[in-house]
Design a protein around this nucleic acid. Structure first.
Length: 473
RNA sequence: GCGCCCUUCGUCUAUCGGUUAGGACGACAGCCUUUCACGUUGUAAAGACGGGUUCGACUCCCGUAGGGCGCACCA
């Protein structure tokens, strides 16, 4: 009987769940599902200084929103320190680790010297073979792993291929700090082993760690899990993803009005492929997913493509479901709470009625909200600067909503449209072009927008509707 | 500086020695539409560079250039 596949997502709770982490989680999740196994969640919170409860909540919320579930409770790595110490002690007892009495200052000095002399920055192994009787009084030692100095460590990576490290390049890393707390590389190995993790899927930034961890596995006589180091996501300019780019927390994407299924689709396509498939369901993703189809080169985050995908998902979501998603989205949207406060069954019905026309034009839930502005705005619409603002924010749909009003009051056209244009130009100059055409048409009174039929119908303006139909035919 | 990795249209990618190098986003142009959007048709757009290996290289090897990651008593 072959053991089930167990993957794990192991973020450190030092901030939000960023987009790279989300994709790593997605890959772990998809692979586990595909193999009929499960994904575990472990919070790597051994750094007590930087770990926060808020970050843990953000990560859990983010995963849940994305629809990625994990088996059992999230494991706190810090909660397992005793076990980590135990393993460190065992290594020590077996002569596979040793006490190092170097102070932080000495080590920093060593590094600085190496750098100045342009030598590789590595621990020199000063205490590797030095008896503890030499220990300076009053210094609490750190425990270092006695890494092999000859030969090489090979990682048979499912994505990177066979990667070889010369052992002489890997120094003796600290596994237990002088304060008795374990370090990352020890904890990870012990936890992955104890949790029966079979496949480790994580970012390439961990590749060198993989070598050191392999050495620890070997020292402990443990089976080394299958590893897959996936490339990182870069910003649009090719540089490391920063806050300027897409390195926002997933909650930011939720606030921008992207649906989880669209995010999943987009993220999956970033670095992984299944022939020419661009748009696929999560079921298909699971069905098709495989480590062998993950590329090795880093991918840039492309908002334009995400938006296109998002628009597709919005358009293809059934109206009632979309309405539900919209309502669930509101608490996370800018100005959503205010809208929620005036939420009524009647409004719901109106929105549902307007949905077919609305979703055709919206690329995100935010745009859906903007487009529906004409439903939420108070009647009659006040035609002042504020109205221009509403109109400009709402874009074409709101403009259409206002046209009947403008039609009824020709004198109001110029000032309102002027306000709208002005506001729009200040806010988003580049989108002016999109508005300009209908604006001009409205200003000259030349034609009536056909999209206005939808609006009038939803608003129940029968007489205007009839009149316009007349005019058109 | 040392180590590891990467390099196909602007972007995400297909190709697993023989293709007119395909698709998608974006761009541009047309059609549809009495606005917008959707839809649809089409156009432009790529193997970083230099050497090999081979009958034949985007594909294999070497080098160069560019880029990324790592080199903590962080994870």
């Amino acid at each position: 009987m072959s053991s089930p596949v167990i993957t794990r997502f192991a973020p450190s709770p030092t901030g939000y769940l960023h987009i790279g982490g989300a994709r790593t989680a997605l890959f772990n999740w998809a692979f586990a599902k595909k193999m009929g196994g499960s994904m575990l969640l472990r919070i790597e919170d051994t750094d007590r200084e930087r770990s926060t409860a808020g970050a843990i909540t953000a990560i859990l919320d983010g995963l849940t929103w994305l629809g990625l579930d994990w088996a059992g409770e999230a494991v706190s790595q810090y909660g397992r320190v005793e076990r980590h110490r135990e393993v460190a002690d065992r290594l020590l007892a077996q002569g596979l680790a040793y006490r190092c009495y170097c102070s932080s200052e000495e080590l920093a000095e060593m590094r600085a010297r190496a750098e100045a002399e342009k030598r590789p920055i590595r621990y020199d192994g000063a205490w590797r073979d030095r008896p503890s009787t030499d220990a300076p009084a009053g210094v609490r030692p750190a425990i270092r792993f006695k890494a092999p100095q000859e030969g090489e460590t090979v990682i048979d990576d499912q994505v990177q291929g066979r990667v070889t490290f010369a052992n002489k390049d890997l120094d003796d890393l600290i596994i237990l700090r002088s304060d008795g707390n374990p370090t990352y590389n020890l904890s990870v190995v012990v936890d992955d082993h104890d949790m029966n993790v079979t496949h480790i899927i994580r970012g390439v930034d961990h590749l060198t760690n993989a070598a050191r961890q392999t050495q620890i596995y070997v020292a402990m006589g443990w089976r080394v899990p299958v590893m897959a180091h996936i490339p990182l996501i870069h910003g649009p300019d090719g540089a490391k993803l920063s806050k300027r780019h897409g390195a926002l927390g997933v909650e930011a994407y939720r606030a921008m009005g992207y649906q989880p299924e669209a995010m999943r689709n987009y993220l999956a396509r970033l670095g992984w492929s299944h022939g020419d498939a661009e748009i696929f369901s999560t079921e298909q993703l699971v069905d098709w997913f495989g480590l062998e189809n993950i590329g090795k080169s880093p991918a840039r985050f492309d908002f334009a493509k995400l938006e296109n995908l998002s628009g597709h998902y919005i358009r293809h979501t059934p109206d009632t479901l979309l309405l539900e998603q919209f309502e669930a989205f509101l608490p996370h949207a800018e100005g959503g709470k205010e809208l929620l406060a005036q939420w009524t069954p009647a409004l719901r019905i109106k929105l549902l009625k307007a949905m077919p026309g609305l979703k055709e034009r919206a690329k995100t839930l935010v745009e859906l909200k903007a487009g529906a502005q004409f439903l939420f705005a108070e009647r009659p619409l006040t035609l002042d600067e504020k109205a221009g603002k509403v109109m400009a924010e709402g874009g074409a749909a709101t403009l259409r909503a206002m046209l009947p009003v403008l039609e009824a009051e020709p004198d109001w056209r110029a000032p309102v449209l002027e306000a709208a244009v002005k506001f729009h130009a200040e806010k988003e100059g580049q989108k002016l072009g999109k508005l300009a055409q209908p604006l001009r048409a409205a200003l000259t009174g030349a034609t009536v927008s056909p999209g206005i039929f939808d609006v009038l119908e939803v608003l129940g303006r029968e007489e205007s509707l009839a009149r316009l139909r007349d005019q058109v035919s």
